[in-house]
Amino acid sequence: MIAKIQKYLINSTEDLGRSIIEMVNGLGLMTEFAGRFFYWAVRKPFRFHLLTEQLYFIGNKSIFIILLTGVFTGMVFATQTYLGFKIINVDSLVGAIVAISLAKELAPVLTGLIVAGRAGSAMAAQIGSMKVTEQIDALEVMGINSIQYLAVPRIIAATIAVPMLSIVFLFIGNLGAYLVGTTTLMIDEALFFSKLGEFMVVADIAQGVIKATVFGFIIAVIGTYFGFQVEKGAVGVGRGTNLAVIWGMVSVLVLDYFLTTFLVKIL
């Protein structure tokens, strides 16, 4: 009996250790991958048409869901904070609080999560299936570096698109909060804006944009990395896509914490 328990413990520890080592390995490989991105990003030829294509895919095509999520987030948040604020009679601060929270946290993080789910998975799937059908080999044989051709445009596009989407989110979220606040919640309109101006600073928006930029970069690096790692056919593609989404989202949330503490000190 004891022997069984011992065996189980040993096995579990081994598994755990192995997983940790694998993860650290993976992190190292990803860092190397990111390094290669930087290497190829600054070399000719510069394929701007690919960049635009990716910007359109990651940016424009996400607009609808960003608008939807943004406006409802703003409305819900305004409603929730109103309930609490009304009790101590500071309901005029709802606009300010919603705006600041959106700017610093909700817009970048939610946008990041949405993009990780949408674009991050797409990147892994696209590149993964290309790998499995030898299309990447075809590129290489033709003398085209697959990282430069596939990963660089996507990563740059995401780094640009996510902050833009985040700003849109922020704007539409505030709009939603304003509409709900002044119609359903009966917050005084003049107070809404004056308190907003009093408490919010440009630095708040800047924080959010910086975060969003980092998120965009990370999501794309993870997405393309897992795409290139795919093996073993359809199953591999599915797995790679899954990993890309999960790690993309996890990274967004974890980085959010570290960025917040870091940015608070600078700004």
Binding site: M130, T133, E134, Q135, D137, A138, V141, M142, G143, I144
Partner: peptide
């Protein structure tokens, strides 16, 4: 090396065509 590769042409077992390009675009790539 990259330039040198123009000297090779390779046909893969399953052709490895770019699936988002048409036949024309593939050949023109």
């Amino acid at each position: 090396l990259r330039e040198f590769r123009r000297n090779y042409g390779m046909l893969f077992q399953y052709a490895a065509l770019f699936d988002s390009f048409t036949a024309e675009e593939n050949v023109g790539f």
